[in-house]
Nucleic acid binder design. Structure first.
Length: 227
DNA sequence: GCGACAG
DNA sequence: ATCTTGTCGC
């Protein structure tokens, strides 16, 4: 039996117990390469609760939101919103150093940890294979999937027109993610493994979740922190 | 050197 | 991410 993960350590508002966040880019780069070695691709054994998380920014204040839904019922189970400041600037390839601290704080406040977290941004479809979804997944040991609106690295062929069709994202001769058409005729999303899931499963679940009217996790979280 | 570049 | 009006289409 393994002790439950205590995420309350992230709610202190202080630096992460695992590593500093305000790092020079070169150190951040090294850290990403090291942590990417911790990314594991495996099958989920159960999926009863799915969370979506996102960050909204207004001037100097940022709000991180986490929303949890039951699956497959799709009922709202819990939601958390926390406000704070972001000190790290947005630099392509280093998004997690900007948003992860506040997101972990919000995730750590959940009464019940989810079986999966859908993150806004890439997972391993990243130059150093550690996008924000992977970073969060590695630090929390919670399975994560990255869903981004734009490509960060690599190339792909346009997926088919209809919902469910997808193509792969190839970066440095590796398949790092997929471009999935979640709605017929609408702009596709970029799906990639964050941690502890398989790309095939990630594609499948993201496609399924996009059918839900209310519960599409990231959208719900986005709604929570913006509108 | 030049262009690309999640949120 | 955020700032923003009207407008094309089902």
């Amino acid at each position: 039996m393994v002790a439950a993960i205590d995420l309350s350590i992230f709610t202190s508002g202080r630096a992460s117990p695992y590593h500093k966040w305000n790092l020079p880019l070169e150190q951040a780069k090294s850290l990403q390469k090291i942590l990417s070695l911790c990314v594991m691709e495996k099958n989920l054994e159960r999926l009863n609760f799915i969370s979506g998380c996102d960050i909204g920014i207004r001037g100097n204040v940022a709000r991180a939101g986490v929303v949890t839904f039951s699956y497959p019922e799709g009922e709202l189970v819990e939601r958390v919103v926390v406000e704070g400041k972001l000190d790290f600037p947005y630099i392509p390839g280093f998004l997690s150093f900007r948003e992860t601290p506040l997101l972990l704080k919000a995730i750590g406040m959940l009464k019940k940890l989810p079986d999966l977290i859908i993150c806004d941004g890439h997972g391993i479809a990243h130059p150093r294979r550690l996008g924000i979804a992977s970073h969060i997944g590695v630090l929390t040991s919670i399975p994560t999937i990255g869903v981004a609106k734009k490509l960060l690295c690599g190339s792909y062929d346009e997926p088919g027109f209809y919902k469910g069709s997808f193509t792969y994202i190839v970066c440095d001769n590796e398949v790092v993610g997929a471009v999935l058409r979640t709605r017929t005729g609408v702009k596709p999303v970029f799906v990639s493994v964050g941690n502890l899931v398989t790309l095939e499963y990630a594609i499948k679940i993201v496609n399924i979740l996009s059918r839900y009217r209310l519960p599409e996790p990231q959208r719900a979280a986005h709604f929570l922190v913006s509108g």
